[in-house]
Simulated scan of single mutants.
Amino acid sequence: MVEQTMKITAADGLHARPATAMVQVAGQYQSDVNLEYKDKSVNLKSIMGVMSLGIPNDADIKLTADGEDEKEALEAVVNKVKEEGLGE
Rank of each mutant, 00 (worst) to 15 (best):
A59P: 04
T5V: 14
M22I: 12
L44I: 01
K80W: 05
G87W: 10
G85D: 08
K38D: 00
V2H: 07
N79R: 14
A76R: 11
K80Y: 04
A59S: 12
V50L: 03
E70V: 06
Q24C: 05
R17Y: 07
T9Y: 13
D66N: 15
N57D: 10
E72M: 07
K71C: 03
K62E: 09
V78M: 11
V78N: 08
D39E: 10
T20C: 12
L14A: 06
G27A: 09
K7H: 12
E3V: 10
M1E: 02
A59V: 05
M48D: 01
D69R: 02
L74D: 03
V33W: 01
A21N: 11
V81Q: 09
K40S: 04
N34A: 12
T5N: 14
P56G: 04
E84K: 13
T20V: 12
E70N: 05
V77I: 13
K82Y: 05
N43Y: 01
E83A: 15
M48N: 02
E36M: 07
M22G: 08
I47N: 00
T9Q: 14
N57H: 13
V33H: 02
L53G: 00
K38G: 00
D39T: 05
A76Q: 07
M48P: 00
E36F: 00
M1D: 03
Q28N: 14
E88Q: 15
Y29G: 09
G85A: 07
N79A: 15
G85C: 08
Q4D: 11
N34I: 01
G67R: 05
D39Q: 12
L53K: 03
T5I: 13
E72Q: 13
M51N: 02
I61T: 09
S46T: 01
A19F: 07
D69S: 05
A26W: 11
V23E: 10
S52Y: 03
K40F: 02
G13E: 07
L74W: 02
M22Y: 03
T20S: 15
L14M: 10
Q4R: 15
